[in-house]
Design a binder for these strands. Sequence first.
DNA 1: ACCTGAACACCGTTCAAGT
DNA 2: ACCTGAACACCGTTCAAGT
Lengths: 201, 201
Amino acid sequence: MAVSARRGAPLTLEEISTTALRLMDEGGVAGLSMRKLAAELDVNPMSLYHHVDNKEALLRVICSTAAQRLELPPDDGSPWQDQLRALAVAYHRNAMEHPALWSHLHDHPEIIQDRDLVLWRTLYRILRLAGVPEPELRRTSDVLHAFVMGFVIAETKGHLPDDPEEVERGFDTAIRLITRGVEGLTGLSPRPPTPPRTSQG
Amino acid sequence: MAVSARRGAPLTLEEISTTALRLMDEGGVAGLSMRKLAAELDVNPMSLYHHVDNKEALLRVICSTAAQRLELPPDDGSPWQDQLRALAVAYHRNAMEHPALWSHLHDHPEIIQDRDLVLWRTLYRILRLAGVPEPELRRTSDVLHAFVMGFVIAETKGHLPDDPEEVERGFDTAIRLITRGVEGLTGLSPRPPTPPRTSQG
DNA sequence: ACCTGAACACCGTTCAAGT
DNA sequence: ACCTGAACACCGTTCAAGT
């Protein structure tokens, strides 16, 4: 609600995709239609096609923008296990802020393929730290991303119980599983001593 | 193509869902519409609504039937690591036979929630064998299923490279990661000696 | 009980026309 | 260059009517 603002102004791709993202946030992927979007922008449906090839292209723009703007923790020098966990937490948080967007992104992984994306750069760096050999970085990072993606999807779709503390425990189990799994892959030391878990999010 | 057969016969839920599944196999989730399905069955679109509440209900029928008919390997007494791998292989194979169906199923996990399904029974049995304590079976099985689901989605959507041998290696990495991860969770022995991998599927 | 035709409220998109 | 109205080819679904 409360549209206006766009009276006489020439309609921007930026404006279109911002509004489109809001519609997705509010009503899921199904909540975004070209016609509703146009109505929201107080514009004829066909005007949109002057700024975007079609609906699919619009979704691609929104998703790849989100992927480029992913906010991930920088290298803070801590053990790779901690950094891997921090990366997973950040990815999870970003995905939960716009579930419908990430749902579409997970349906169209080609959008996120570019190995220069901060996501892959960060993951590669951490896996190198963990001792994963160079020729296996691609494969290992793909598998780990698939796992985290699966977890995010399961959580988004309500696979998990209501109790948020239980969700937190599930997340913890997932991260521990991945971490031990990577240790197993590389035959590394079973990790430095970890406090019983007192983080908050 | 080649429909016929249903001339005068009274139109069955079985017939409807079989044809619907075929349409999904051929054209993805988007390839199934109530109107196309009716045309395929040589029937008025509205006739379908006499056997099924709506499209969503039809998809639910197809998916839960598939879930109930999942063909999984029986307990053969081998080490849990091998059985876990065999389970993942079987799940993967089933999913790849009807990608669109499983895609919908993964979007609606409530369809697969019933803990009496052979999928969960089998997974619980294997995790017990692995030493996962009873109160953590639910959580652990949910996480593992989310992981495998994520891998299947990534593969289905073409996340992975073309080379089928590379896909096979990715699958292998995923399974090893999961197995070592579970070992890490339970603090179990790092597994009995395994031959270098000579299976064929 | 089972099927149907017409109709309603939506879609995405093309095309020719307007300024 | 940017926007628009009318139109096309689709959707899922309701409802009143047929046998």
